[in-house]
Amino acid sequence: MTGLSSFWGFRTAKQLVESGDFELVVGVDSSPPPEPLDGLDYIRSDQSYSSLARLVKRTEVDTIVHTFLVLSSASISRRAMHEINVIGTMNLLGAAGQSGSKVKQIVVKSSSLIYGSSFRDPTFFTETSPRAFSPRTEIERSLIEAEAYIQEFAEDKPHVDLCVLRFPNVIGPTVEADLSQALIRGVAPVVLGFDPLLQFVDEEEVLSVIRFVTGNSLSGVYNVSGDGRIPWSSVYTEAMARPLPISPLMSEQFTRLYQALGIAKVPRELIDLLRFGRGIDNRKLKNAGYEYGQTTSEAVRSFAEYAASLRSEPPSIEEPKAII
């Protein structure tokens, strides 16, 4: 497990430990997990996993679950993002591929962000669809670089099952994802004159997909998303969130202004998404045998209910966690 102390790392590790299918679950991170867990070993490493090689050798792990790719530029520096996504993945693969390694499967949690978002896109990206334009944001570039290493590794080590999962926007009560958090706060960024169709998965579904592929010797790239797409306006209306208008022209300047004024943080990679939306074709994973628990609109509905209920309660005295 990489990024043990992160949201996904810890939740996934917990799930794997509880499943009882694994003899030993080892988690690496630069800080200890939020709570100790029976059957889970924590090993300290730096952010770019340079010490992983020794660990892989010593523990003879056969499965690596890499959930620590950074998928939002909202609260991380370019450098740190590069270090984690690109160098981290490179070191991880290096460790997994060294001679004497027992690694049989690597599962990587990636994002549909890798397809970008533009007016030229197909309505549904398949796993092999190319991007319409070269990436303009750092986060997309780093994901592409990371996945390129993964692709290379898959070619060099065909005996290792390399499974890349590309998720759309994740929503849920606890996940630290931009749109999810925005809906919980009740402020939804909206590019005026656009109402993109989006896909969502619930945080529980993410875990269940990771669980499905781990130990299932699935390899290749898989898009993950519940059926259907939903207009952003329906999502924030249902969640009773207030739209935060972004001008269709000079959108970036607008979002920077909002950020400077402390109103909201809208990372750059979200602007195009809020304009053109994105759809990914989820049929490959279905054909591999996975049954989705929820469609996009079911996921949105239950989450929106939760998000709306948070705000219909009387305002709490406790100070807001952070200004958006």
């Binding site: 549904f124 059926d227 259907g228 329906s234 209306t237 249902e238």
Partner: peptide
């Protein structure tokens, strides 16, 4: 009896 109007919007929009 959800009021979500997306029921009439298909995945093509």
């Amino acid at each position: 009896n959800e009021s979500i109007d997306s029921t009439s919007i298909d995945h093509w929009g």
